[in-house]
Deep mutational scan, measured.
Amino acid sequence: MDPFVVLVLCLSCLLLLSIWRQSSGRGKLPPGPTPLPVIGNILQIDIKDVSKSLTNLSKIYGPVFTLYFGLERMVVLHGYEVVKEALIDLGEEFSGRGHFPLAERANRGFGIVFSNGKRWKEIRRFSLMTLRNFGMGKRSIEDRVQEEARCLVEELRKTKASPCDPTFILGCAPCNVICSIIFQKRFDYKDQQFLNLMEKLNENIRIVSTPWIQICNNFPTIIDYFPGTHNKLLKNLAFMESDILEKVKEHQESMDINNPRDFIDCFLIKMEKEKQNQQSEFTIENLVITAADLLGAGTETTSTTLRYALLLLLKHPEVTAKVQEEIERVIGRNRSPCMQDRGHMPYTDAVVHEVQRYIDLIPTSLPHAVTCDVKFRNYLIPKGTTILTSLTSVLHDNKEFPNPEMFDPRHFLDEGGNFKKSNYFMPFSAGKRICVGEGLARMELFLFLTFILQNFNLKSLIDPKDLDTTPVVNGFASVPPFYQLCFIPV
């Protein structure tokens, strides 16, 4: 058959498939802009700032609406009420993970971030239990974070109060905490193996944040037939998995079943207990991918939040002064901060919360999916439909947070200066898919920041009023603009 005829037939089939998918069930789905064949609503979305586009569309179609990214149908949730109703009140029905062709290629359905069903539930339950087990290797997770915080302070001392970009050092600290939990080992910041790991993690975040990856996920045929950065992403992930597998083999040879040292040991012990169960989800494949998931999810998000926190503290020296006064009063100079201190430091706690609220790190979270046909607000959402959640619409709700575009710790303080919780605080998402490392991340943010401010004054290279804190939105995360500062020993 003539190649031209084959091409026309293929394009015609794709067009018909697109029209059929977009028209099927439209009477039951939430409203939304009319999609174009094949490309859907992509032309109506700013790929570099999806969150802003969703906010604009919500003003037209309401808090629940339908979009098509290519052939992929998505239902968008915008605003606290619908997000709570879906992710919390109907948590089980909305607990699936959205379709990610690239991740599915890399992870093969294993791990904790992109798995679904029984596998996801069992691996998540085990990971939560293990991360909360403060007795691994007779050292609590808090001990590990405190140790890394001391190392971080010593690295900052080496800058000798000269101007520096904190990106690298602030990236090393949370990565080392995860390494300590998974591998029972922290690395020197100049260790070549550690630097290679950091390089792969950072490069992957840069790649994932590009519009090209959005295109690959919406048109998965590209993955096999086109060159691009997605190939580098898959190569980096394969490198990390190979490295983790080597460490798993080392653990198998040296493990003491009665004295687990780290996450890998705990997983291997669980595998041993379930070795007679042919349906067990505790396999080497799941261990390797879960460890890679924890490394990827637990490094860049925390380091970016820390980097943004220091920029905001530079911009608002009056806030920094209040935090340091609270540190001096509650902790002093002669001991290290600990998590028990947080309950006695409402202002510092409010500042950490406000940093996370203000920066809105992951504006749309990772997409969910419905696990069955769901009736939601008089609409029928078919099983498997991807759910896109606007966390921006919750964290920047102007009824809950007056002047949401302003950095103001009073958003989390009552009139008496006591810490005030808010149900709208969802930087880790909400419901059954809430970030498994939430507790660890909150511990790291509090301890790293208090250790830094206990030991250093922060000095800006320019007038604080002239510092730009506008986030650089890159399609996946909101990151701070480049800046330098000086760490002046107190």
Rank of each mutant, 00 (worst) to 15 (best):
L9V: 11
L17G: 10
R21S: 11
L29W: 12
L29I: 10
G32C: 01
P33N: 01
P33A: 01
P35S: 06
P37M: 02
P37F: 04
I39T: 04
D49S: 09
T55S: 10
I60A: 11
Y61M: 00
Y61D: 00
Y61S: 02
G62F: 00
T66S: 08
Y68R: 12
V76P: 01
L87G: 03
G91I: 00
G98K: 11
F100V: 10
F100I: 13
R105T: 07
N107D: 05
N107L: 10
F110W: 13
R119V: 08
I123E: 00
R124M: 00
R125A: 13
F126P: 00
M129N: 15
L131E: 03
L131C: 05
N133Y: 09
G135H: 12
S140D: 09
I141D: 07
E142D: 06
V145K: 01
R150M: 12
C151V: 09
C151I: 12
E155N: 09
A161G: 14
A161H: 09
C164V: 15
I169F: 12
I169L: 15
L170M: 14
V177K: 02
S180P: 02
F183H: 06
F187T: 05
D188E: 13
D191R: 04
V208P: 07
T210R: 13
P211G: 10
W212H: 08
N217Q: 14
F219W: 12
I223S: 11
T229I: 14
N231G: 09
N231I: 11
K232H: 10
K235G: 11
L237R: 13
L237C: 08
F239P: 04
M240S: 04
M240G: 04
I244M: 11
H251T: 01
H251Y: 01
Q252T: 08
E253S: 14
E253Q: 14
N259T: 06
D262E: 00
F263A: 03
V288M: 06
S303M: 09
L306Q: 02
A309F: 04
L314E: 03
H316G: 02
V319F: 07
A321C: 11
E325N: 12
E325G: 11
I327W: 02
R333V: 10
P337M: 02
M339L: 15
Q340R: 13
Q340W: 08
H344F: 14
P346G: 05
T348S: 06
H353V: 03
E354Q: 02
V355I: 12
L361M: 09
L366N: 02
P367E: 01
P367A: 06
D373T: 08
I381T: 00
P382C: 03
K383Q: 10
L391T: 02
H396R: 12
F407D: 00
D408H: 05
N418E: 12
K420L: 09
S422W: 01
F425V: 03
G437N: 02
E438M: 09
G439S: 13
G439K: 15
R442D: 09
E444V: 04
E444D: 03
T450P: 02
F451Y: 15
P464F: 10
V473S: 15
N474D: 11
P480K: 06
F487I: 04
P489R: 03
